[in-house]
Design a protein around this nucleic acid. Sequence first.
DNA 1: CGTAGGGCTGGAACCGGTTCCGATCGGAGC
DNA 2: GCTCCGATCGGAACCGGTTCCAGCCCTACG
Lengths: 337, 337
Amino acid sequence: MPSIADVARLSGVSKATASRALSGRGAVSPATRDRVVTAAAEIGYIASPNAASLVTGRSKSIGVLIRFVNRWYFGEVLEGLERAMLARGYDLVLYNLAVEPEARRRIFEYYLQRRRVDAVIGVDVDLSPDESDRLARTGRPVVTIGGTMLSAAVRLAVDHRETARLATRHLLRLGHRDIVLLGGEEAERDREGVQGSRVSGFREAMAEAGIADAPYLPTEYSMSEGFSAALQLLGDPAHRPTAVFAACDEIAFGTHIAARRLGLGIPADLSIVGIDGHENAGMFGLTTVEQRPVEQGEQAVRWAMSLLGEGDDEQAPHDVDLPVKLVVRSSTSAPAR
Amino acid sequence: MPSIADVARLSGVSKATASRALSGRGAVSPATRDRVVTAAAEIGYIASPNAASLVTGRSKSIGVLIRFVNRWYFGEVLEGLERAMLARGYDLVLYNLAVEPEARRRIFEYYLQRRRVDAVIGVDVDLSPDESDRLARTGRPVVTIGGTMLSAAVRLAVDHRETARLATRHLLRLGHRDIVLLGGEEAERDREGVQGSRVSGFREAMAEAGIADAPYLPTEYSMSEGFSAALQLLGDPAHRPTAVFAACDEIAFGTHIAARRLGLGIPADLSIVGIDGHENAGMFGLTTVEQRPVEQGEQAVRWAMSLLGEGDDEQAPHDVDLPVKLVVRSSTSAPAR
DNA sequence: CGTAGGGCTGGAACCGGTTCCGATCGGAGC
DNA sequence: GCTCCGATCGGAACCGGTTCCAGCCCTACG
């Protein structure tokens, strides 16, 4: 492996000038810069970021703390993060928080402390005050997409409350009154304070329409859980709602399948609206409130770069509202009768 | 940030002894080791792997080259990789190959060359000879799960041909003769040479039963593509097969949904068998050949460690056959009539 | 009692970069 | 012609570890 000393020798300059020529910092005459650069190319020299990090304190890598790694939304965000980092010369170091508590502790007490990453990006993770504190003490800039991270300098988030209102109002406007929210897991209630949850957005919109305490069924964010919950909910014809608001598209898919299995036509007998903009939404003709997870990842990297002083000098804001968009397909219509 | 010099000073020894005491290499008296260790704990010292990597050449991180990051199988493997690396003190550096060619080139020509990772694990990636060569020249040990990587020292792979045979024979044994394979994308034919593809396993099993040139429909490995392909395949009652062998579970799900939409009962009018063991297989009652992607990831890390000399001294084999298992559920039965 | 040998330890070199500081040089300004 | 200044460059220190090597002490053995 060629080192910068080899480049220096080959181009007849000192290590110092070779470093300056290659990094672009400091004054070097155009002629010598040329010589150094061609020499480096000739022997295939590539600087070791590890060595550089010792003195600069920058390792050209970013840690990603992610809530899951194997769910649709997270895979998409990860794709965006990866792509954006790759374009800027940064490595992505992955820390999955969906592990047992002991392993999670090690992430905060050991991995994040060993000055390996220049910044941390969180993806929908909820940190305890202690974890947040430990993260803050590393002195690294922190960006987060959703979740609760007290130590984040920049927080990107979709307004869940508003998103839920959008979806709910769409159903209300079509004439539905008997709507059930599927989703809104227990845990989400804890996050209420931060941004407002999907549950409260749903209930607010319903309340505006004069319907108090609109019902919801806690469900995990997965197709199979949505399926079983929907089977239960829709099984009794006497108490069947005319519309289901699924807290994510995968729940909506499960609901869709359950409904058809029960012989219900969609949207004839049941309207369904989801949240996410999942790639399979089109296949189900699902009306949904789209978010753009890949772009969310890219944007998170943009702000992380800005915090690291590698950005386009835009001032990083503290809070960014991520856009969502209602996309109407064939799964919603006015209720029968 | 405390450095090893701080630890040394506090415990009254030299940097050299402190290093020996903490790393466990070299002779240190139990008494001084104790002093050093407690001093380190007291000031919260954590060694910088970057600094250590300079002299040891080991950075305590492993690069993961992955074909996709946002598909079920890959998310599962990633989970296993992450968990296993975390347990052993290694960082996971992610390189997603599902990027434009220019970015892909940079991964091989730049990122993998900057001696950041100690080893590379590939997940179902097909490397060009040039890419393989570049990877080999880094001198890093390489482990791969599936795919084609010439430079891999250890290759874990399910026997796709055998897997397809298993699934096909299951259908044949139930009495099906009219079976169509959904999947077997174009690209897979190129990989024929390596391990035998699902297509050829299917055809061989069919040929054993006296059916030559059994039909298959190239389809991308996704639910929505499976859905449209199945709609097309099953739409014409005159040429409808009695069973579909889906090359992956997501295609099987799509087929399932398409079949029911066409009013077909499963398994009454159509049997379906898939491959993967997807978490949603249970929901669809899908008969499938299970593989264990999380465990595959864990195993890949085990062998990488072994190649790095951190393993349990087992000799790393060159080829490992990953186990699969036929799980029969309600989506298959004898054909009607 | 002398010596060999082994256990422990510290000094110093080193890994591969970056950056501080001082030296050199050439040209502008007087 | 002399001074001054800025551009350019090299030497050396430094980042935070690891490891080579030499030296010390102590014990075992002849």
